[in-house]
């Protein structure tokens, strides 16, 4: 369960001065649900997700993940979430096996648990054939699978995806989409950001429309469409943000 209420974050920018990247954003996402944050580039999606993942500290408002507040106990929140973004990279000189078990240990898992989890994940994603090769030698699709394995090695109850399909080809995107569905089936709480409306439509149970740091609408896709009086998400989006 992820509960976000009135989350706020400002940055100092040389040109623009103080910028409210996230301005009072609130939403909730229950286990077994996929929540989509929809918005154009620069809307504040990444910053919101970084606040949830504890990479950044909120200035005001709260986010509670599985009952733990990100401001009060960020350390504990970290073991509750898996994080994957379109531009997270790999250690080129390590093998997928070394890479994934490194993160397993960082999450405090013991060797036998790591081995067991890793074996299961590698089978699920069909990774055994390249598990011992250096990451720099892998294809984009293989790399993506290593990133996925890394993000779930500690079996987190909540998953955060920040534009996970950006820059990927059709096949690799599909792997990610399948994986998100799998997470939902396993009863994980999934938050997912994108600027691609069709992707949101296919995957999300609920969506939030975010623009210039503010949440403009929040609900199921049908609710959003009804609210805007449109029959597709793209038109609804444009109408709601009023541009």
């Amino acid at each position: 369960m992820i509960q976000v209420s009135a989350l706020t974050k400002t940055f100092k920018d040389k040109k623009r001065g103080l910028v409210r990247a996230v301005d009072g954003v609130s939403f909730t996402c229950a286990p077994g649900e996929v929540y989509g944050l929809l918005g154009p580039n620069g809307a504040g999606k990444t910053t919101t997700l970084r606040l949830l993942s504890t990479a950044l500290r909120p200035e005001a408002g709260t986010a509670v993940i599985n009952g733990v507040d990100v401001s009060e106990n960020p350390q504990k929140v970290r073991s509750q979430i898996g994080f994957l973004s379109g531009n997270t990279g790999l250690y080129g000189r390590l093998t997928p096996m070394e890479m994934v078990s490194y993160f397993g240990r960082l999450y405090g898992m013991n060797t036998s648990l790591i081995k067991e989890r890793m074996d299961r994940i590698f089978s699920m994603l069909d990774m055994h054939s390249f598990a011992g090769r250096r990451c720099e030698k892998l294809s984009t699709g293989m790399k993506q699978k290593v990133s996925i394995a890394r993000s779930v090695i500690h079996d987190p109850p909540a998953m955060i995806f920040d534009e996970p399909t950006t820059g990927l080809d059709v096949i690799s995107s599909r792997t990610i989409v399948e994986f998100i569905r799998q997470c939902r089936k396993e009863g994980k709480t999934v938050i997912f950001s994108t600027h691609i409306m069709s992707e949101a439509r296919r995957l999300c149970d609920k969506v939030g429309i975010i623009h210039k740091g503010k949440m403009y609408a929040d609900g199921t896709i049908d609710e959003i469409l009804t609210q805007a009086g449109c029959d597709n998400l793209e038109d609804a989006f444009i109408k709601i943000v009023g541009e």
């Binding site: 970084r50 993942s53 504890t54 990479a55 350390q75 970290r78 073991s79 979430i81 994080f83 973004s85 531009n87 997270t88 990279g89 790999l90 250690y91 080129g92 993160f103 960082l106 999450y107 405090g108 890394r150 993000s151």
Partner: peptide
């Protein structure tokens, strides 16, 4: 540059 820093920062290691 590799985009691995963020994944480290959100792991439980301090």
């Amino acid at each position: 540059e590799r985009g691995t820093l963020e994944t480290l920062l959100i792991s439980p290691a301090t």
